[in-house]
Design a protein around this nucleic acid. Structure first.
Lengths: 205, 205
DNA sequence: AAATGTGAAAGGCTTCACAGCT
DNA sequence: AGCTGTGAAGCCTTTCACATTT
């Protein structure tokens, strides 16, 4: 079972949509419906599901609850994951209380910032610490995921500390590419770069 | 000159890195250096640049200032673009004052929210309006880019309004895929989906 | 009849490898 | 000698098309 990142990404979207369908009380869904919801084609969806060795029903489609459960197991999407946010500027603090994360099984258990003043001012239920404590806190609390929201020049250093302390996944909001070991999962969420590439595509189209 | 989205994305990153090099006063850069900075391989970088019909110098690499200028022209990256943010929750307000956007030629000229109370409370230099005024304001101010930071169920409606009012690019922070005309550039920035796919990859690796 | 499941074909992107240039 | 520029090869992903299932 060899999953490409693209397949994983799409299947995660399918999982999210299955939640919606489940809440609506819909029992079966076709590959075409799933495809429309996640922005893919029906054959891609079918292939993705079959790569995961899961299957639907001829003439009926996929059983919503069953498929959701199976995907949850295969990708361990029901497992609670502890995460932390490093960098408590505007973006970082917005993320601290982003309720959606909690709903989705991500528990933000710590926030870090370099500025002691900022730490004292922040008004949140989540524990916040100085960056100097990062390694201890991450290790002690067994935090698996790090969300980086610090300025560009600090990002690589933070990534290094996170990895050293045992983090196995990094979501990077800074505008620079980070270097992490191959066994650490890594994804960029760079707004500026995103906006720029939209603008560039506007220019060339 | 047929540019894939991937090429556009990488070249935008290259452009960002060229800015850094320029500030440092570095005159020439090799494809290998660029590749390392943007997380790609050297041949990919060379191919991307050659697709754009740009060229470097044998044995010396690329002239930093020149390449930056040429990329700027080809992709119109120096053009100022007016943008607006719809949805002024935590994320939306964080984005409102994200200085990086300004540095990069994006001018946030309006914010919108459905809640009148929220609009009155918000403390920012940027003009904020009720969503009901969206179509008028976007059209009048000739806003080209819309940033969607509203809840899932409202996102498609907002996208429709934005497009109808003349927006040519959409950056979507909501967790649902949106449908926009083919001539409108569109990109998703879905945190939840991103975190989930990191977690899933952690599970299968 | 209306869906899935899946080999095979097509398409697109990346890497290779080396000629060419200074 | 060292780096670019690029056709060709290789790899990966998507799409096609149709046998299969109920």
């Amino acid at each position: 079972m060899k999953l490409s990142n693209k397949t994983v990404e799409r299947v995660c979207r399918v999982f999210g949509y299955l939640k919606v369908l489940e809440d609506k009380g819909i029992a079966f869904v076709s590959s075409l419906d799933l495809a429309k919801a996640i922005g893919a084609t029906e054959s891609t969806v079918r292939k993705d599901i079959s790569i995961l060795e899961l299957t639907g029903f001829s003439r009926k489609g996929y059983d919503v609850m069953l498929l959701k459960k199976e995907l949850g197991v295969k990708l361990q999407l029901n497992k609670k994951r502890k995460a932390c946010i490093v960098g408590l500027g505007r973006l970082g603090t917005a993320l601290l209380d982003y309720e959606k994360f909690q709903e989705d099984g991500f528990e933000i258990v710590a926030g870090f910032d370099a500025s002691i003043n900022k730490i004292e001012r922040i008004n949140t239920v989540i524990d916040v610490f100085a960056v100097d404590d990062l390694e201890n806190v991450v290790a002690q609390r067994k935090i698996e995921l790090g969300i980086i929201a610090v300025p560009a020049q600090a990002a690589q250093g933070i990534a290094y500390k996170l990895v050293k302390s045992g983090v196995k996944g990094v979501l990077n909001f800074s505008p620079v590419k980070l270097i992490v070991p191959k066994n650490v999962m890594y994804l960029d969420m760079d707004f500026t770069s995103a906006l720029r590439s939209i603008a560039a595509r506007m220019a060339v189209c």
